[in-house]
Design a protein around this nucleic acid. Structure first.
Lengths: 210, 210
DNA sequence: ATCCTCCCCTGACATTTGTCATGCCGACCG
DNA sequence: CGGTCGGCATGACAAATGTCAGGGGAGGAT
């Protein structure tokens, strides 16, 4: 484990996760790999962004759920500001919609936290080399969930219905008649094959369609 | 860091978390402490129970959300089978109700994953010494959220309503008239000060009242 | 013992939500 | 050009949900 014999420049990493315990542990484990170097850590979305600007890492390893701005949002900003920085998203419970949003934001890797640290190190190298990596199981979920069958208005109305607001309020906010709102809701419910609008909201959220 | 000079018997730990990445990292970090020894790991509730029976650890460090049986359920079983084994629950997003259930199950410690590894090691020692430790912020949340204002039946009906089932079905499963079911739902809604039953379900879940 | 309060339960009524038949408009195709 | 299809929009009707007034019983307080 010497330096002179290894002229390779290490991969510089940014680690962002709001759970100190995990972030610290992860940093310790990744530090064991000779070719990886953690140059910055962050506990929130905005902090991750600031750290990235300051340290210009090669790869940013971001947790999906963080206070301030989630991993995907950070990735979007990073894409614009630091095009050379690859983004790898790590997540606890991977919902199909997140993966889709993430890929659209230019994220290069997407893995659940169930992988081992060694595997993660490999994936970091893969991503750094310019390749993509998404967890096969999450990918399968995303593909099977497919594209949204909802029309623009249906999605809009469903979103307004998300917090349990009554139809009158939705109608007002969407500048529609109550009947029309019910119609879109009903249509969404039948397209999604669920019992009522609340289940529809849940499903659409899971699939990332709202 | 030698052995002969330190005759203390290390604290034997069981680590249970379904996220391999985190569990592995945690094990590595805790291994750095001379007086802590990870003797078993598990990725699910039942597995944690089996491991505990086999290795009889001094302290079980359990994640709250695991497949099979959650941390609190495991703690309950452990309490009966291995009274000498202290339980410490570690959780990502600490909802007030969980803490209450955990303490009732005889858990000795309850901390969020935002603590540092060093702090966790200290807390493990605290718990092993027979003392209790709960994260101050979580404790404050739990106290401020208070006890459930719902009666037994109200909670029961609300739980049956949780997956969006229609009233008729709830009435059937609870062996009540539809009117009664509506009544309990309505009562719960007004007690919780929310708009409709779905919001009530969400709130009650958050507070741990169902 | 009697009152009072709280919980459990019910049916009738008003409101909200879900479903249906229908019309309008723009896009695409023959 | 005329026809057809899918998205947008509406109101009338049926079904589910929420609200109300009230009756019966258990347990604690006076």
């Amino acid at each position: 484990m010497t330096a002179a014999a290894e002229p390779v420049r290490p991969v510089r990493l940014l680690l962002a996760d709001d759970e100190h315990l995990i972030r610290g542990a992860l940093a310790a484990l990744l530090a064991l790999e000779d070719d990886l170097l953690v140059v910055a850590e962050a506990a929130s979305g905005p902090e991750a962004l600031a750290m990235a600007r300051a340290h210009e890492p090669d790869v940013a390893v971001l947790d999906l759920q963080m206070p301030g701005a989630d991993g995907v949002r950070v990735a979007t900003s990073l894409r614009a500001e630091l095009p050379g920085c690859r983004v790898l998203i790590v997540t606890g419970h991977g919902r199909p919609g997140h993966l889709k949003r993430a890929l659209e934001a230019g994220v290069r890797g997407f893995v659940p936290k169930t992988v081992s640290a060694q595997r993660l190190a490999e994936i970091i190298r893969t991503v750094h080399a310019g390749n993509r990596y998404v967890d096969p199981e999450l990918a399968a979920d995303a593909i099977s969930s497919g594209d949204s069958p909802l029309t623009a208005r249906e999605a809009e109305v469903l979103e307004l219905a998300a917090d349990g607001a009554p139809v009158v309020e939705i109608a007002e906010r969407a500048a529609l008649s109550q009947g029309t709102v019910r119609n879109y809701l009903s249509s969404a419910v039948s397209k999604l094959g669920v019992e009522n609008r609340h289940a529809a909201v849940r499903l659409a959220r899971e699939r990332g369609w709202v």
